[in-house]
Design a protein around this nucleic acid. Structure first.
Length: 813
RNA sequence: GCGCCUGUGGUGAAAUUGGUAUACACGCUACCUUGAGGUGGUAGUGGCCGCAAGGCUGUGGAAGUUCGAGUCUUCUCAGGCGCACCA
């Protein structure tokens, strides 16, 4: 008998697939389309890790399943190559990012091929290829023309180690997402994409997405919509400033506003101080600016200083002192607040510390435990609004303020515009040049791409410019017959990955970023598999998709219909895998150990639900290998067995059709682990049936079905078995088997009898007798075990028959 | 502090969506087999009692709804993730 040797059959099929081009996706087809993609990898020098293997095991199972079901499947792959690791590697070794990237891609490609992933290699893309980033730059110019790419000077996050600014989304808990350094604020003139123009739509459209709730919640929180009002307070005493604008979500509490607080960076602070207060205010401001955002957040103890000025409460008319304090943030709302200490914990803390008046304007409920009441309730001390519910008062007060010209309803968002300048070499140059007046001009399409020059000194510095600033041949340029100076910053790598899913639809287009009909045919992505970047990449792709739709470049506003977020695979001990701990698993090593790609992929999917974090288990993969080996041996035994044995096909057909149904249902809901378990059960069943003899044709059918159902998980083994079973077509052509309900019913059915909810007996009856409820109950009550328990004066009060007679519950007492 | 998620055997996990708890796999035990140690086969395996038939008990904990709860409700404990002075 031939032994199962993955090291022989896997290369055989990989070669055959490559030569036949079976996985090439056809643009346009009579078949329905399915666009399945994994978040493309950054090809690091370390090669594939198990996280990649998990993402692509999922992508490939889905792709193969739908291909077999008859869909025209697009399963592409590409490389997210711009970014810090390649550049840092270049600084360390002198090997250029261009060259290191080339080597790494070749390695990744080889490794992916060895996993047997059914991708369309003719669509491979690479974001650092000028053919690709030409269009990334072109998209920048389109945003620039619509004023959605703009330059602004402001305080930005600066990573002192990587020596570049970062977007808000890329600062995680005050640390650089790349290197983990504590970031600083630096005032710099930088490029932004105006994602905030789409804040409302980005928020609203989340509801329609088939995405994990976790990701949707994170995006909702990130966008951070608040509805309220902006209110103008008149400055009445001691200052040059006349008015201060604040934002509040609780205009209903305005009668309780007893002082105002401005952020230290607020531009009006200077005008509000006088000679007496200025020294102290200036000192406070300077200290606050010096402190990192982290330090400001760590110290929750309220600090602040009085400006010396006063304002008037527009409704109560009361005089309010004006303060500066760092608990008010410049970046949100108006950078100034009306403080309502009675109904806001932070304001109360501040008021208590500086002995400021506290005025209650909402009556807490009777059972309120005490402390600061921040909820809704009945209005008090609020003039004509007394007695009204606060929600109603809120609307009335805003209306009044609007009528008096003292304020208006307003919605604010926490999300800021996306800062896309990077002071690093290894990225797509921002396609802009400045004229003699310093005015930016977008590089016209016929001058694109702005090619990243090959240099030798990549070292970033504190100048606030990338290494490109040191290359005069690059910076000097003639544009519109004018001498100009190029922008030397590069684009955030997340820009490159914000449109790659569209490029896959038309990857070799030299004249456009993509052809609209092709993009509209394939898009949106039906299934996208990722593992991170919940508020970066996953938000940016949505932003750009909406922009493209507005430009008439596409006809859809959401790029990803369904998002599968895969969990992490941890080390055996349950701790995170990390190179420094030396507990990583190299997937290719596992393949080479003899387990093969099929066992690796099947194991990764069998380990648990795809979205859960799971520990790796070397023993576990042994179990899956055993299953594949048993499958293989079963086919081998069939091929060698005598062909004249006869057996009753009923049992065989039942388990076969049951398995088809289960695997199909499970794959439709991405429940890969239970689908594989069903296949294991099927093989176990086949072994039992085998002992009792079989009829060749039924048996061949059962094994062919097994190969077809196994193909999404273990495609090499499936293809080999399919061929061994005498099929001249391919699994892809043969399609997906369908089940027939008629094989799922048995002549005899088990009836479970419960008494007061506890299982007390089981009896086996002919299936048709389950349909007759009355007759069924008689038989159940006649069953000795049952009558034993219901006799002795006990009365059956109620009977419940469920699941088509398969369960009977008797209520007895 | 706020929000979300997860708690089921020794382990990874199933459970037809309110209907037989622990499928499948790992591990363990016994036996068989083999070229006698790493990837063969069969059976058993939640806990307690019992030779057995069977009984009791059991899904982090407490209460509730229901004929019936791992699943629904309330409270509570533990772990994970996210946000965190956002007015």
């Amino acid at each position: 008998m031939k032994r199962y040797k993955p090291s022989e059959i896997e290369p055989k099929w990989q070669k055959r697939w490559e030569e036949s081009g079976v996985y090439k996706a056809e643009d346009f087809s009579e078949k329905p389309k399915k666009y399945v993609a994994g978040q493309f990898p950054y090809p690091s020098g370390a090669g594939l890790h198990v996280g990649h293997a998990r993402v692509y095991a999922i992508v490939d199972a889905v792709s193969r399943f739908y291909r077999q079901l008859g869909y025209n499947v697009l399963n592409p792959i590409g490389w997210d190559t711009f970014g810090l690791p390649a550049e840092n590697y270049a600084i360390k070794t002198g090997i250029s990012p261009q060259s290191a990237t080339k080597t790494n891609i070749a390695n990744f490609k080889k490794q992916f091929k060895r996993l047997g992933i059914s991708v369309d290699w003719s669509r491979e893309i690479n974001t650092s290829d000028p053919e690709y980033y030409k269009w990334t730059q072109w998209i920048f110019t389109q945003l620039f023309e619509k004023d959605l790419a703009y330059r602004a000077e402001n305080y930005q996050w600066w990573c002192p180690k990587d020596k570049t600014v970062l977007a808000n989304e890329q600062v995680e808990g005050g640390h650089c997402w790349r290197c983990g350094s504590v970031v600083e604020k630096r005032k710099m003139n930088q490029w932004f994409f105006k994602i905030t123009d789409y804040a409302e739509e980005l928020l609203a459209d989340l509801d329609q997405l088939d995405w994990p709730e976790k990701i949707k919640t994170m995006q909702r929180n990130w966008i951070g919509k608040s509805e309220g009002a902006e209110v103008e307070f008149e400055v009445v005493d001691g200052a040059d400033a006349r008015k201060i604008k604040i934002f509040t979500t609780r205009p209903d509490t305005i009668y309780g506003a007893t002082f105002l607080v401005l952020a230290p960076e607020h531009p009006l602070v200077n005008d509000l101080t006088n000679d007496l207060t200025r020294p102290e205010v200036d000192k406070y401001r300077q200290e606050a600016m010096k402190k990192s955002e982290i330090e400001r957040q760590e110290n929750k103890e309220k600090t602040g200083v009085f400006t010396g000025s006063y304002a008037k409460n527009p409704l109560s008319g009361e005089k309010m002192s004006i303060w500066v304090a760092d608990y008010v943030l410049m970046g949100y709302g108006e950078g100034a607040i009306m403080a309502v200490p009675a109904h806001d914990e932070r304001d109360l803390e501040f008021a208590e510390k500086f002995d400021l008046p506290v005025k209650e304007v909402i009556k807490p409920p009777a059972n309120f435990a005490g402390g600061c009441y921040t909820g809704e309730g009945e209005m008090i001390n609020s003039g004509r609004y007394d007695g009204k519910p606060s929600a109603q008062a809120r609307e009335l007060i805003v209306r009044l303020l609007e009528k008096n010209g003292q304020g208006q309803a307003k919605t604010t968002y926490k999300m800021r515009d996306w800062l896309i300048s990077r002071q690093r070499y290894w990225g797509a140059p921002i396609p802009v040049a400045y004229d003699a007046d310093g005015k930016p001009h977008a590089v016209p399409e016929d001058k694109l791409p702005v090619v990243l020059p090959e240099i030798t000194d990549y070292q970033p510095d504190d100048s606030g410019h990338s290494a490109l600033a040191k290359v005069p041949e690059f910076t000097q340029v003639e544009l519109n017959s004018e001498e100009m100076t190029r922008e030397t910053d590069t684009l955030d790598g997340f820009a490159c990955s914000s449109w790659y899913l569209l490029r896959y639809c038309d990857p070799r287009n030299e004249f456009n970023a993509w052809d609209k009909t092709k993009a509209d045919y394939w898009s949106p992505v039906d299934v996208y598999v990722g593992a991170d970047h919940a508020v970066t990449h996953q938000l940016y792709v949505r932003f750009w998709a909406k922009f493209f739709a507005d430009q008439g470049l596409t006809n859809f506003r959401e790029p990803i219909k369904s998002l599968l977020y895969s969990g992490y695979i941890n080390a055996e001990a349950g701790t995170k895998m990390s190179k420094s701990k030396g507990n990583t698993i190299d997937p290719l090593e596992v393949v080479d150990q003899g387990y093969g790609a099929d066992a690796l992929r099947t194991y990764i999917l069998f380990i648990g639900p795809y979205q859960m974090d799971e520990p790796w288990s070397t023993r576990g993969i042994g179990g899956v290998y055993r299953f594949l080996n048993r499958t293989w041996n079963l086919v081998q035994e069939f091929l060698e067995a005598p062909r004249d044995a006869l057996g009753d096909p009923e049992e065989l057909q039942k388990t076969q059709h049951k398995t088809i149904k289960k695997v199909t249902d499970d794959l439709r809901k991405n429940s890969f682990n239970t689908a594989i378990a069903a296949l294991m059960e099927y093989v176990n069943d086949l072994y039992k049936i085998k002992l009792r003899g079989f009829d060749e044709e039924y048996w061949r059918g059962a094994l062919t079905t097994l190969a077809q159902l196994l193909a999404p998980f273990a495609p090499h083994m499936a293809a080999e078995c399919f061929e061994l079973l005498g099929r001249s077509d391919t699994i892809e052509d043969a399609g997906w088997p369908s089940h027939d309900e008629k094989y799922l019913t048995s002549a005899q059915e088990e009836v479970v009898v419960q008494i007061n909810g506890k299982v007390r007996a089981r009896l086996t009856l002919p299936a048709e007798e389950l349909q007759d409820e009355k007759g069924l109950l008689e038989k159940v009550l006649a069953e000795p075990r049952v009558s034993e328990l219901t006799d002795g004066g006990k009365k059956v009060l109620k009977t419940i028959v469920v699941r088509g007679g398969k369960m009977v519950n008797l209520v007895v007492e």
